[in-house]
Computed example of a mutant assay.
Amino acid sequence: MNAIPLTPADPSAVLTIARAWAGTPYLHQSSVQGVGCDCLGLARGIWRALHGDEPWEVPPYSRDWGEAGRREVLAEAARAALIEISLDAAGPGTLILFHMAPGVPAKHCGLLGESVMRPSLIHAYDRSGVVEEAFTPTWSRRASFAFQFPSAPTEVI
């Protein structure tokens, strides 16, 4: 089977979609713009705005950033539908996955934004909802995986 190379979506379109979610309250396992979402819900909402229905149902997942285990479930799911790139190649509109503690799987994600002076991060988290804030060295140190949304949906088998 020959894989068809994917073309990344327009970063400005991805950022416009992500920024439209600003102010959406945090709600674990939700993905409804203006009503509630978590970090994965934001990424799911961007997918739906670009491509329509998601290619699979998201199974229940815990809020625990310190969850034990070596399997990178979030990264594996992203690889099934998005375009993985190196962290060095990440730019505006790139979905970044974060390890929130050493030795645990990546459990948080957000979009690299852009600002006049420095990069930003658009993400959802408890007590803040969807916000855009500075992509600080603290976030940069935790960045573990980088993915671009494709311009056309992938076929998930």
Rank of each mutant, 00 (worst) to 15 (best):
P59L: 12
F98K: 09
G34T: 07
F147G: 13
P60E: 14
V58C: 11
P5R: 14
A43D: 09
L15N: 10
R48Q: 15
V116T: 14
L74R: 08
A49Y: 10
P59K: 07
L6S: 15
R63N: 14
E57Y: 09
E72T: 02
G23W: 07
Y125E: 13
G129V: 03
P5T: 14
A75E: 08
A22P: 02
C109Y: 05
G66R: 15
R19M: 00
E132W: 00
R141L: 06
V58I: 12
P60C: 11
S144N: 12
H99C: 01
S140K: 02
L40H: 03
A68K: 07
L15D: 13
S86Q: 05
F98V: 04
L112W: 04
H108E: 05
R141S: 12
N2F: 09
I85L: 10
A81S: 06
E67H: 01
D88R: 09
G34V: 05
N2T: 08
G69M: 05
A20L: 01
V32Y: 11
G129W: 07
I83Y: 07
F135G: 05
A49H: 13
H123L: 01
P92F: 08
R70S: 13
E84D: 00
H123K: 04
P5F: 10
E54K: 03
Y26H: 01
D10V: 01
F149H: 09
A77I: 12
I46C: 11
W47A: 12
M1K: 11
D38V: 02
I17F: 00
G36Y: 04
I4C: 03
F147D: 12
E84K: 04
T154E: 10
S128A: 09
G36T: 10
D38Q: 03
R118F: 14
M100W: 07
F135I: 06
L82A: 13
A9Y: 06
I17L: 00
A43Q: 07
P25I: 01
L6P: 07
R71Q: 04
A49I: 09
A77R: 14
A124F: 00
Y61P: 08
R48D: 11
I157R: 09
T7R: 05
R141I: 06
D64K: 12
T154L: 13
P11M: 05
D53S: 13
A75P: 06
A49N: 13
S30F: 15
T16P: 07
E54D: 07
G69F: 02
N2W: 09
S120C: 10
L27T: 05
E76Q: 14
V73E: 10
A22K: 07
A78F: 04
